[in-house]
């Protein structure tokens, strides 16, 4: 069943109205109806609300050292307990999550935009431009993600902003490859020829027609790279290369918690659990998008 066939199918969508399903809504629908996807969305919504609403939800200042004592165990007053400097760990976890989200989303978004543009243009143009662009991409892929990030932090110096740049940097080659493959698969289809013969400009053909049909695999990749980005952000701040103390970060919390495992198990376990939930949901989501956007897998 091709994407075009699905487009004209009449289906009862989840909000109960008969709609003419576009590929976009078919994918969204598929994600929501998939139990994995539903769990992922619920989990991510919770985490995003927690991160975005951190200033409102957290009852304590994440930096102020004003709790009743050091290493207080989790209680109704301090949900995740307190740390070595009498700071509330629940607030610190929420603000750390917020920082992780910000860095990962900005990094992946910039990397995706650049990578997809390179891939689309290379695939559409073909010839020498394509070969040159793809060889460069291969060279970038020769560095495993973490090593590339470490190299960039060496050049630019440690810091949150530079972690974002590092994430954008390693996002580029993965997307350039995928976008090029998508472009090559799509560019000789009838609808592209039709719009070209009507006089559409290359930009219009690429971004208005092909991009929309090539989008589900790119979306899957984006969810997956978000997971990688969150992981690398946390790993780098765990190594002590991303923090600007006293601002909290998920990796930074885990790093400091190591020294106090004997006194305060919650210091490592609570932020660690939030981090695990985040990774878990992002991976489930990418699986769900993948299943929803590929009809073969859906029919299984």
């Amino acid at each position: 069943m091709s994407a075009a066939d699905q487009g004209i199918e009449l289906q009862l969508s989840w909000w109960g109205r008969k709609t003419r399903e576009s590929l976009f809504f078919a994918t969204i629908n598929g994600i929501i109806h998939n139990p994995q996807g539903a769990i992922a969305i619920v989990g991510l919504v919770l985490l995003v609300v927690g991160a975005v609403g951190a200033p409102v939800i957290a009852q304590h200042d994440p930096i102020a050292q004003d709790a009743a004592g050091r290493f207080l165990a989790p209680s109704t007053e301090h949900w995740f307990g307190t740390d070595e400097l009498r700071r509330d760990l629940f607030s610190r976890t929420l603000f750390g999550l917020r920082a992780s989200f910000a860095v990962s989303i900005i990094g992946v978004a910039i990397g995706t935009a650049i990578g997809v543009s390179i891939g689309f243009v290379a695939g559409f143009a073909g010839g020498v431009a394509e070969t040159a662009a793809m060889r460069l991409v291969d060279a970038l892929l020769a560095f495993p993600g973490l090593l590339a990030a470490l190299a960039i932090l060496t050049i630019l110096g440690p810091g949150v902003r530079n972690i974002g740049i590092a994430i954008a940097f390693f996002t580029i080659p993965a997307f350039a490859r995928l976008a090029r493959a998508q472009m090559i698969a799509e560019k000789n289809k009838d609808y592209v020829l039709a719009s070209q013969s009507m006089g559409a400009s290359p930009q219009r053909v690429i971004f208005r027609h092909i991009a929309i049909n090539a989008f589900p695999p790119l979306l899957t990749q984006m969810a997956l790279l978000m997971a990688v980005a969150v992981l690398i952000t946390a790993a780098l701040s765990f190594l002590g290369l991303g923090d600007n103390p006293p601002a909290p970060s998920l990796g930074g919390l885990l790093n400091v918690s190591r020294q106090y495992l004997r006194e305060a198990w919650w210091y490592a376990v609570c932020p660690g659990a939030v981090f695990a939930l985040l990774l878990f949901c992002l991976n489930l989501l990418s699986d769900a998008i993948n299943e929803a956007s590929s009809p073969y897998q859906r029919r299984r």
């Binding site: 885990l254 190591r258 495992l261 004997r262 198990w265 490592a268 376990v269 660690g272 990774l279 878990f280």
Partner: peptide, 22 residues
């Protein structure tokens, strides 16, 4: 697989450090 996806190596390491060493 699900567990290892959610718990990356360094977090798993800290957990084991807490349980088995401390």
């Amino acid at each position: 697989t699900l567990i290892t996806i959610g718990i990356p190596g360094f977090v798993f390491g800290i957990l084991m450090l807490w349980i088995f060493s401390v």
